[in-house]
């Protein structure tokens, strides 16, 4: 209930602010005497709806270019870190380039439709345009780093759900500040603001 109210409040605030900014831009350009001048205000979001969505944390479900079966790869004994190589080393887990896919799939299961798609990208010299599944909105100013979480023994599934049963990755866990803090408190990890927001 409280969440709904907050959402509605935020919505009205955002709409008022956007309206004010837009009308300000219009009036400025109308008064400007110099010929051919453009409005000085450039919105950071293409549409108001887009701004509202970001503010409320609504994100569209990503549609991946290839129906990648996580479950089959894991069942074949390939650990998460084989492909998401950065996870234990730095902030970003990383999505493998198609070169890594083709190390096996040049010869393995190369007759499958989805594998042929990967090969198609590879042969044209391009990478697969994977869509991002997780992530924070830029305005949240969150600097997440995978490596310390892996070092602390947090299991991947804690934040990413049971990938062993997924084909393409879906946002199984809603990651917001409450979720992060819950775990940080339980683990007695720092809950200082600047641990994540800097």
């Amino acid at each position: 209930m409280l969440q709904h109210r907050l959402g509605a409040l935020a919505f009205s605030l955002v709409s008022v602010a956007t309206f004010l900014l837009c009308s300000c831009a219009r009036s400025r350009s109308a008064n400007d005497s110099s010929p051919g001048s453009e409005p000085f205000f450039t919105p950071a979001h293409p549409t108001v709806a887009n701004a509202v969505k970001e503010f409320l944390g609504w994100r569209a479900t990503p549609i991946q270019p290839i129906a990648f079966p996580h479950n089959k790869h894991i069942a074949n004994g390939i650990a998460c870190m084989v492909c998401h190589t950065g996870v234990s080393k730095g902030p970003v887990a990383g999505i493998p380039s198609d070169k890594l896919c083709m190390r096996c799939h040049e010869f393995l299961a190369s007759d499958r439709a989805e594998v042929k798609k990967v090969a198609g990208y590879f042969n044209s010299g391009l990478d697969v345009p994977w869509q991002r599944v997780y992530g924070f909105s830029p305005s949240a100013h969150v600097k997440f780093n995978h490596a310390p979480h892996i070092r602390a023994g947090v299991d991947c599934s804690r934040c990413h759900g049971d990938v062993t049963n997924m084909t393409v990755a879906v946002r199984a866990v809603q990651i917001n500040m409450g979720f992060c803090l819950g775990c940080h408190r339980a683990q007695q990890a720092s809950t200082d603001c600047v641990t994540c927001h800097f």
Partner: peptide, 25 residues
Amino acid sequence: TLTACEKPVQQLVRFVPEEDFVPGV
């Protein structure tokens, strides 16, 4: 070597990554 008998060495070379970056670093 098993499947494409012509030039296995070149095939292998083709997949050596040109760069080795830790993502995000």
